[in-house]
Structures are given as C-alpha cells and as structure tokens.
Design a protein around this nucleic acid. Sequence first.
DNA 1: AACAAGTTAGTGAGCAATCACTCATTACTG
DNA 2: CAGTAATGAGTGATTGCTCACTAACTTGTT
Lengths: 209, 209
Amino acid sequence: MNDKIIPHFSDEVRGVSAANGSAKAKIERAAVWLFSEHGIDGVSTKSIAAQAGVSEGLIYRYFKNKEALARDLMLAIHNRLTLMIIDAGKSEATLPAQIHLITRAYCEIADDDWTLFRYHILHISRFPGLSETPSLSPHGAAARLIKNAMERGEIPKMNPDVLAAMVLGVVLQPAQAKVLGAIKGPLSKHAAVFEKGVLAVLGLNADKE
Amino acid sequence: MNDKIIPHFSDEVRGVSAANGSAKAKIERAAVWLFSEHGIDGVSTKSIAAQAGVSEGLIYRYFKNKEALARDLMLAIHNRLTLMIIDAGKSEATLPAQIHLITRAYCEIADDDWTLFRYHILHISRFPGLSETPSLSPHGAAARLIKNAMERGEIPKMNPDVLAAMVLGVVLQPAQAKVLGAIKGPLSKHAAVFEKGVLAVLGLNADKE
DNA sequence: AACAAGTTAGTGAGCAATCACTCATTACTG
DNA sequence: CAGTAATGAGTGATTGCTCACTAACTTGTT
C-alpha cells in the first residue's frame, strides 16, 4: 500500500501544469475549485478573479474566454486519465494485469488532485465533444482494451462498449459517492476491492481465495 | 422481454404527474428537456416559457422560482427510483431476487421517461441535500438492502456503502454512456447483462451457465 | 552608468446584453 | 360578474468581456 503507481507512467499522466506561483496557475486553481463546487455557469469571472487574487481582466490574457478556461481544465484531467489507460494497455499484455495497474492509477490520480477529478466526474457532460472522440476518452480506451482481450479469447465476446461502461462504473460510482459524501477517505484505500469487483464483472476471478 | 416490471409497483413508482395538457405539465416538460440538455444555469426562464408555449410570468404561478421548479423535477425521479428499490426490498426476501427486480425496474424507469432520467444522472449533484438524506436516496436504499443481506449471511461483510456504489455503478455508468452517445438503444435491452454483472460484483453468480 | 524605446504583466471602470422575477392588466370561464 | 388563468412590458441586478491605462522589466545605444 506504500508504493505509488503513478510514477510508472509518463509525465503527461503524472500531471504537470503551470508553475505553482504564476498568475495563470492561480487562476486555474481558483477556477477549478469554484467550477467543481458551483458548476461552470454558476461561477462568474469576477469571483474567479477574486478567489485567485488577481484582476478580472487578467483572465483574458491567458484564456480566450471563460469557456476556454473551463475546457482547458477539463481537457487536462480527461487526457490524463485516458493516456493512463492507454499506457497501461501497452505495458501489460493480459487484461488482469492491465486492470491491476489501471484501478490503482485511477484511484491515485483522483486522490492526487481530487478537486480536478471531482470537476471531471461532475461536469464532463458539459463538453460532449470530449466523449464523442471515443479513442481519446477513458471509456473509449477501456473499450479498446476489452475488445482486444475478447479477440485474444481472454473473455467471452459481447458488446465491448456496454462491458466497458459496467467496468468503469465499478470504480466511478464509488468516486461519485465520495463526491456526494456517502464514502469518506482516499479512494486508493478501496483499490483492491475495486479490482476484485472489476475482475468479477469480467468473469475473471473464479480462481481466487 | 415482453412483460414490464413497472406495473408490479405502487403508483408513485410508476410515475404520475400533472394532467398532460395542463399549462403546468407543459412547463414541466419544457423545463426538464431544457435542463437536461443545457443544465439548470444554462437555461433562462424566458426559454422555458417559449418552449412550453406559455408566457414567462405563468411559471411563477405554479413554482416559487426557477430553483423550485428544477428541484421539484429532480425530486420526482429521485423519489421514484428510491421508492422502487425500497419496494423491491419489501416484496422479495433474498438479495438475488431483489436484484432481478431492481435491475429491470431501473432500466424500465429510465426508458419510460428518458429525458427525466437523463436530467437525474447529469444534474443530481446540483442538489446535495437529496443525497445527504441517505435513507431517501437510491444509494442509501441500495446500501440498506446490501447491509441486510450481509446480516443474513448471504454475502461476506464489508463496507456496505462502497459495495452499494460499485453495484449501482454497473447499471448507472452504462446509463451515462448512453447519455454521452457511446451506447445506443433502450437500456432494458441490457438488463440481463446488468443483473449478471451486479451478481458477479456481489460474488453471487458462481452457479450459472 | 544613464537614458530611451519597447515589451510584458496587470488593472478596474465601464458597456451592452441578459438574467430572474414582479405586477398591473387582460382574457377566459362557470 | 366574480374568480381564476394568463400575459408581457418593465426593473434592478448581474453577466462576460473590452480597453485605455499604469507599472515593471529588458534591451540597445551612447
């Protein structure tokens, strides 16, 4: 439980952003916090500037408009999660090994920047375009891994999109429950349970215990 | 696949609202459609009135303000889903029988009023109060059924809130995937697969096939 | 060093547009 | 005509965004 999974991945997956003290970073941190709490339309540019401790006009030096600011932040976590799944698919050959890596990394990314992750699961639906590019979304990447495993004969063939959604739900719904206060503490604490649940949905855990 | 599950439940679970042609019903239908599409803050009272074919002022004859309208609609589907789970817990004695009923009914309620269901899963987080009353939320009701099954010795003991979230995720994440366009057709088509997945997460499907 | 010129970072008053909501008035109905 | 249903122009507040401006810092020339 001590060793982190994230360092095994590339820099993009580990999550990098603007220099911590810069004005741009202050705006981003203020915005992601306020957006996750009140929704994008529930936050004014004035309140973002106030929370960041900068003037309102400065936002428009770094971002074209409020929507672009919201989109950039969403894209950061969206791509981070997607690339993590793709990387895991490349570094491991079998579905169970991939799932072991992915469940841990998913939880660690969520715990690492919970505000940004919370923003992602609460408000991703504001950006339909991000999910309409299947290969660059967590769902699409997961569906691809599952489809490959089906073609290798690791699991029975069925609709990979439905199965990918069921599998993602085993991890994402507890995350949403944590957002809504029904579950407490870091997600990583439950990573082993999530892994077991995911394997069960895939019919891969008959040989355990 | 022909027989519906919904009729087995009480009137409240079957879903009843204002008379179809009344002005109040027209406002509700217009609001739930626009809210689910653009979010509550992304919809103006003017646009609701226009879509409903009534004047803007009429909204305030039937609802105290825009927030109350949004809350009433959310409460309708929220209570409908919650009561369905509670009812299933009363009418069936074992967890597998309860799950058989619930997965079907969940899908049928979603298909029956997809716009309202879509509004629920996309924007429930706007009303944290609804989830903070655990016994009156789908998550809370499901957690109770699971906890009871643990005490009857049907499944191993563990954190019932975490397990309830994982189980709900198996059904809700495919619903979200359908919202985002990754899955098509009615949810009921996949009810049997969802049931199998839920049983697997609970460790209850060793005796199948 | 001294100064001028140019570039970048940052400000905040102000603007047109839109917002949720009110209310005096009208239309309808039994 | 009493009572309810319905209207929509009007209101003050707030919105996202602009832009003329200042402050601070780099660079080039002497």
